[in-house]
């Protein structure tokens, strides 16, 4: 399994202004295109992921834009949209809470696949800091998501914000 922590300089303006409006929200951002298809594409089950957060936590998930086009794949390469959070929010509630929501979503929806150590899932969390932002890219078995975010990894992430 891999968890890549990538420092990035900026994020797109719309996402940034939405996050400034309300730094306490979990922003769900589409892929920017797929193959030749250009424009915003949300993974087809994005609505379920949003409902999962809103129905099972005290936090609020919102789409950054109207999901008019959905991307449907027969794989777990893009099962949830890009999750964008403010550093302030992550500092308040802790990154593990957000990771926990992704894990419980997979556990509820794909119980047996979740338990299968051979099944790979991919997702990205983006954290917008004051100066820098971070991309946390996970690629590995669903069952190892929680254990990948060790206290050391979490402090490494927090120190970079």
């Amino acid at each position: 399994m891999t968890l890549k922590i990538i420092e990035i300089n900026n994020i797109d303006e719309i996402t940034e202004s939405k996050l400034e409006e309300n730094p306490e929200q979990i922003l769900l951002v589409p892929n920017s295109g797929w193959r030749e298809e250009k424009g915003a594409l949300y993974p087809s089950e994005s609505a379920d992921f949003k409902k999962h957060i809103n129905q099972n936590s005290e936090y609020k998930a919102e789409f950054v834009s109207e999901p008019t086009k959905l991307l449907s794949l027969n794989s777990f390469d893009a099962f949830i949209p890009l999750v964008v959070l403010s550093a302030q929010f992550v500092q308040n509630i802790g990154i593990k809470v957000i990771v926990g929501l992704i894990v419980s979503y997979l556990q509820n929806k794909y119980t047996r696949i979740f338990e299968d150590s051979n099944s790979n899932v991919k997702f990205t969390l983006k954290i917008k800091g004051k100066k820098k932002s971070l991309d946390l890219e996970y690629d590995g078995p669903a069952s190892e998501i929680n254990s990948t975010f060790t206290p050391e990894k979490v402090s490494e992430i927090m120190s970079k914000l």
Binding site: E37, K69, L70, S72, L73, N74, S75
Partner: peptide, 12 residues
Amino acid sequence: MFISTELIVKKI
């Protein structure tokens, strides 16, 4: 190996 069809869904 399995086939993953890639669809753009416009109405659901």
